[in-house]
Amino acid sequence: MAIAPPERRLWWKEPLDKAEIIWITIAFLWGIVMFLAMIYWHIVGEQNLSNEAYRIDPEVFAAKAEEMTEKYQVREEGDTGIPVVHPPPGSDVYLISRLWEWWPILELEKDQSYRLHLSSMDWQHGFSLQPTNINVQVHPNYDLVMTIKPNEAGTFSVVCNEFCGIGHHTMVGRIYVTER
């Protein structure tokens, strides 16, 4: 029994049953398949998180975002006073996260690539793009750069999905994607 010492003192010399060998082999091969799947997806898949990241001071990041906003602001969102920015395709786009907002609002074009920079001014936040459902962690002092290519037009929301204090559930940003 499993609660008593093994009957055969030399338990490590027992032969294996065929069924067990088969199952262990299948399970082992399945592990290899799953391992290779991740590598395969880096080669042919279109959804891979970039490895590009830099250390950055929050002030420096904020300055870049403000500069971009000044240059490419197209309007304000309703009467909220939040700027809406339409940066040129292919450019570097900065999205600030801080307690408790995503700033500014971005307007992107469908099927165009952008280098999106994410960083936090204070605590950690979670970039959760809805309804498409892409989720990326945002840290202070790190500038995460990923190339995104919206594949559908419409209004998207950025919900914060890392707990960031009492206003966490009010932290929602927006990304518009326009047809070209």
Partner: peptide
């Protein structure tokens, strides 16, 4: 979660937010 609902989140109706989002 598959529908994108955040964990550790008090209000998925975003009643107090400036900008909101409607989960399905």
């Amino acid at each position: 979660g598959t529908l994108g609902v955040a964990r550790r989140h008090w209000d998925i109706t975003f009643a107090d937010s400036t900008l909101t989002f409607d989960y399905p």
